[in-house]
């Protein structure tokens, strides 16, 4: 579904990605693990169009989307749930969801919001509240819901469990699992390797801007995965 081909993405002269290749198959949950600074977020941003790779290509459903505008990429069916959620703090929940549907021009937006409220009753209770006043878990749900409003075929998620209480983390992972069951493909970046591997169909290890391992959760000893996901091989 998504093919990332040998991309190099740099901040100024520093190359954060030094030739990353990976593929995300349709209907699956693909997880990207790796220590801080490995380039996980940069990878997602390069796919979503926030960063333009210097080299290499990104294709989605066979079409080249390298370096396209984020709006074009959302329209093609890729939505990113960013790290730290990044909800619109002074907008109410309802307007946050409407913004998620910004690229759409159909007349099913309001009915989609209704079905979002059925899926996330907590958001319905707080539909008129400013997003900045929600708890961390609620903000994460809102960020996921906002991405869903674009009706994505593939959802990119950047550390959705970051800074959340364990119970909320379980809820978030259950939501990810459910979304995938309903047909949305998931590309998930996580620090919480334990939880991520439980729902992953396949995973990649990213270290210092390079993919160093790819396989399914049974392919590598779990202790080794966790050590490399947190500390890298050099540790």
């Amino acid at each position: 579904m998504l093919e990332v081909n040998d991309i190099v993405t740099a901040y100024g002269k520093i190359e954060a990605l030094k030739g990353v290749s990976l593929s995300v198959p349709e209907g699956q949950i693909t997880v990207l693990l790796g220590p801080n600074g490995a380039g996980k977020t940069t990878t997602l941003m390069s796919v979503a169009g926030l960063l333009k790779p210097k080299r290499g290509s990104v294709t989605f459903e066979g079409q080249d989307i390298t370096g396209r505008q984020p709006g074009t990429i959302v329209q093609r069916g890729i939505a990113l749930v960013p790290e730290n959620r990044l909800v619109f703090p002074d907008m109410n929940v309802h307007d946050n969801l409407k913004t998620g549907a910004y690229v759409r021009n159909d007349n099913e937006i309001e009915s989609d919001i209704e079905s979002i409220y059925e899926r996330f009753p907590r958001l319905k209770e707080r539909y008129h509240q400013h997003a900045g006043t929600l708890s961390g878990g609620e903000q994460q749900m809102l960020a996921v819901a906002r991405a869903l409003m674009a009706r994505p075929k593939l959802m990119l998620m950047d550390e959705p469990s970051l800074g959340l209480a364990p119970m909320i983390v379980e809820e978030i992972f259950r939501i990810i699992h459910d979304l995938n069951q309903e047909g949305t493909s998931i590309f998930l970046v996580e620090q919480n390797a334990n939880m991520a591997l439980k729902i992953a169909h396949q995973f990649y290890l990213l270290e210092q801007g390079l993919v160093t391992f790819s396989g399914t959760p049974g392919d590598m000893d779990e202790n080794e995965v966790i050590q490399r996901a947190y500390l890298g091989t050099t540790a």
């Binding site: 979503a48 709006g71 960013p82 619109f88 907008m91 998620g100 991405a147």
Partner: peptide, 23 residues
Amino acid sequence: TKLGLATRAVAQQRMAAQLCGIR
């Protein structure tokens, strides 16, 4: 209006606004 929604989105959280497809 949708234009206003985009304006408020950019003012409050620029990167998220971009991710929603706002120029």
